[in-house]
């Protein structure tokens, strides 16, 4: 199963939308860097990302942006080692930017 890594905010580029067009049940999706804004329940894109299994966001990026106390709903917050684990568990790994 593919792991998709997205690093841009959904308002910044088309990459999250393009990624979701090819996303299949069982694929993983990891939000990093500016893409973590999309993890918020109050994001305009919440409907695209909430209540899906296997959607993750990097803790370091959430903390850096002052989002720690905000609700990220069903999206799992993971650390850098768990990021590595995801790339071990999935193949191929596709980056979207």
């Amino acid at each position: 199963m593919t792991l998709h890594i997205v690093n841009k905010s959904p308002d910044q580029t088309q990459c999250l939308k393009d990624c979701l067009r090819v996303f299949r049940p069982g694929d993983g999706l990891l939000l990093i860097e500016d893409a973590v804004y999309g993890a918020l329940v109050n994001s305009p894109y919440a409907a695209l990302l909430q209540n899906r299994p296997l959607v993750y966001a990097l803790i370091a990026d959430i903390e850096a942006r002052g989002l720690s106390a905000m609700d990220t709903g069903s999206i799992k917050r993971i650390n850098d080692k768990q990021f590595v684990d995801l790339t071990v568990q999935h193949s191929p790994v596709q980056s979207w930017y």
Partner: peptide, 19 residues
């Protein structure tokens, strides 16, 4: 771009995980 820093952290984490 932050991505260079992300890559560096990822590199360290792969080594810490025994890869």
């Amino acid at each position: 771009s932050q991505s260079v820093g992300t890559a560096h952290r990822f590199a360290e984490a792969t080594l810490e995980s025994g890869h």
